[in-house]
Design a binder for these strands. Structure first.
Lengths: 178, 178
DNA sequence: GACCATTGTTACGGAGCCGAAGTAACGTCC
DNA sequence: GGACGTTACTTCGGCTCCGTAACAATGGTC
């Protein structure tokens, strides 16, 4: 996509400062900047996804399944962790199953819950897609390592304050990964 | 929506550092952090939009029309500036027109182009929606003024390096606003 | 006047979200 | 051990936006 004729974030900010207040203006600028940055990167991500016959949502599920040592995960875990509505999880798993990348399995003790299990083919697809994402998008983001860290840190604070994840439990869970 | 059980960004980063390289890991973390921050704020934005019978895309168009002194703008300008595909612009204007918030008008000199003109009702709706967005989302973002500025600055650099907007022309255009 | 670019529209399928309803299984509390 | 509320997943219909492609009409250029 071609560049916009000007920086919409900065332009909007001027308008907001004129018509509203500085608190609203900076908040608006934060949201708009995040939205536009997302769109920018997402365009590239989608391109890679299409070349692997995936969508980002399907890829995300696959990627988590591929990293999990047990290679299986409950559908509700997917919904909670990736913040995907249950009805959409059903769609996604349907499609992944249909493509032979995942299969549904019964939970050993809880008859209500369904497990998603990655297949060998799914594992291969996940690995290839991630490899492409890395070289074609992630490694090309135009920021220094220091800037990336700052950005990640600021957004972590934004998310924590908005209760996007459980700050208390997070440390334990993550330490368990290592 | 309820918080995720842990910080997915940080968890993914550990996995990436184990399986790939630090460049890919920080890039992935940047994208994921932006995505999740967007989702977090967007949930609130959508809530406000729904209460005004708008979508964010329709609101954005309306808000720009409301601030423009001439109150009219070509459809192609909308497409380029807000990065909305032409076919979607047609949909959006159709709906705004149907709701009586905007009307189409012929361009005075170029018979190919169509102008979108905001109505009095559209102006009122835009103002109310913005007011709610400000108090219910933008003014509540959990970052200090300094942090917001840092964040906006980092994202501006990310966008500029990704050619999201025309850096050269942007200064002129924005100075013209003031 | 021929040629190409730009503008907007139409049509089609795909993806994900929303809301609401429904089924089935689990857990708890009296 | 039965009633009740909760949790897990599915189904359905509708909506919005995207991607692609084709098309008509106009404008600009050589």
């Amino acid at each position: 996509m071609k560049p916009a004729p000007f920086d919409v974030v900065e332009a909007s900010r001027r308008v907001w400062l004129r018509d509203w207040n500085s608190e609203a203006a900076s908040g608006m600028a934060v949201f708009t900047a995040i939205l536009r940055s997302f769109q920018l990167l997402n365009d590239d991500v989608q391109r890679v996804m299409r070349s692997h016959d995936l969508t980002f949502a399907r890829y995300e599920v696959l990627a988590w399944l591929a990293t999990d040592p047990d290679s299986s995960v409950t559908l509700s875990w997917i919904s909670k962790t990736l913040r995907i509505p249950p009805a959409t999880v059903t769609d996604i798993i349907d499609r992944l199953e249909q493509d032979g990348l995942v299969r549904r399995a019964a939970h050993p003790t809880d008859a209500r819950t369904t497990l998603a299990v990655i297949t060998a083919r799914g594992r291969k697809v996940a690995r290839n897609a991630t490899s492409d994402l890395n070289t074609e998008v992630y490694e090309r983001i135009g920021l220094s390592e220091t800037q990336r860290d700052q950005l990640i840190e600021l957004l972590a604070e934004l998310r924590a304050s908005g209760n996007e994840f459980d700050v208390e439990r997070s440390r334990q869970v993550i330490d368990d990964l290592g």
